[in-house]
Simulated scan of single mutants.
Amino acid sequence: MTRRHLLLSSTAVAAALFSCFAAPLALAQDNTGQPIKLVVPYAAGGPIDVTARALAERVRESLGTVVIDNRAGAGGNIGADAIAKAAPDGLTIGIAATATHAVNPWLYSKMPYDAGKDFAGITQMVRVPNVLVINAARAEQLKINTVADLIAYARANPAKLNYGSGGNGSAGHLAGEMFKQKAGIFALHIPYRGANPAQLALLAGEVDFNIDNLAAAAPNIRSGKLKALAVTSLEASPSLPGVPPLAATSATFSGFSIDTWWGLVAPAGTPRPVIDRLNKAFVAALNAPETKTRFGALLAEPVPTSPQQFDAFMASERAKYQQVVKASGAKVD
């Protein structure tokens, strides 16, 4: 082979390699007529869907059109699986949440995706504290004004307390079991078909306490129908002045932290330059004052991160919930 032929051949190989790696990057950078699809593994109208749509609007100038694709079902597994199996070209991304990427891997006997291997983090989006609430009338009747009062009553009256949740393996169930374990008390778990029926049961006095999402519980706390005893985040919530973090109520609950969170992921194998560009656009959107105001109305705190930080956070959450799910005995077959 002549030197000229060798040079031409090497140039052709280099060009081919460049096209292979540049193609997905070009798709993510120039998506005119090729909108980015953002898969939300839950039904339209909920807090996750609302925040996803808000961000989609804010990144329009930097990323082009972002279309929301709601894929609800199987506790979020259907939508998460759609993200995992999409082409890693930056044109399909989606939401990773507490359930889909921390709880479900231990709750479901068979999973269609690997939460630890099939995704590449882009950025965490938000966290929402959970809150330990008791029926206000019941609290007055039993003279329960603090977490210590609740624990003291449970110890003095074995098997008389119960608590509700949105179902076996739900965030409220797992948080309740973790609370019982730390406190060394017993309270009967009563599962309902969703968080709203569980809250209605609490309001009706069918159950004594719940650990609920703050966004869902706040209106009834403000109206005086529910009494908030503690939030389950490490820090107090500015939305509930005077309500302490559970971790601060006693050494028993040191480090106790169960928040509801969600963020953005891409399929594993998405090129790093694409991930970085998506991260830059969405972090800027999360840091915008308008986003903070809009999310604040949902009691959701924006928490933009690097892709590496979000990957590490999801791994730590999976490790935490592995123990919590095991202790609860919850299983979905």
Rank of each mutant, 00 (worst) to 15 (best):
G296E: 06
G194S: 10
F253A: 04
K331A: 02
G116T: 11
E235M: 14
L6P: 04
M1Y: 06
V325P: 00
A198D: 06
Q141E: 15
Q322F: 00
V126Y: 02
K182D: 11
T11W: 12
P289E: 14
A268C: 07
V126L: 13
V332I: 15
A56D: 03
M111Y: 09
Y153S: 07
F179K: 15
I122W: 05
I185S: 03
A15K: 09
A139V: 02
R155C: 01
I93W: 01
A218Q: 13
I275P: 01
H5S: 12
A16P: 00
E301N: 10
N135M: 12
W262I: 09
P158F: 12
P105K: 09
G329D: 00
T270I: 05
L203H: 10
N213T: 12
Y321G: 01
I122P: 00
P244I: 06
L8T: 10
L299C: 06
T293I: 12
F18W: 13
G224A: 08
S170N: 06
A52C: 00
P105N: 11
P238A: 02
D69W: 08
L91P: 00
R193M: 07
R127K: 15
G166H: 01
V131Q: 13
P197W: 04
G75D: 09
I95A: 04
A86L: 03
P241R: 15
S250I: 01
H173F: 02
S170T: 08
V39L: 04
G64L: 01
V147Q: 07
A120W: 09
F253T: 06
A82E: 07
G242N: 09
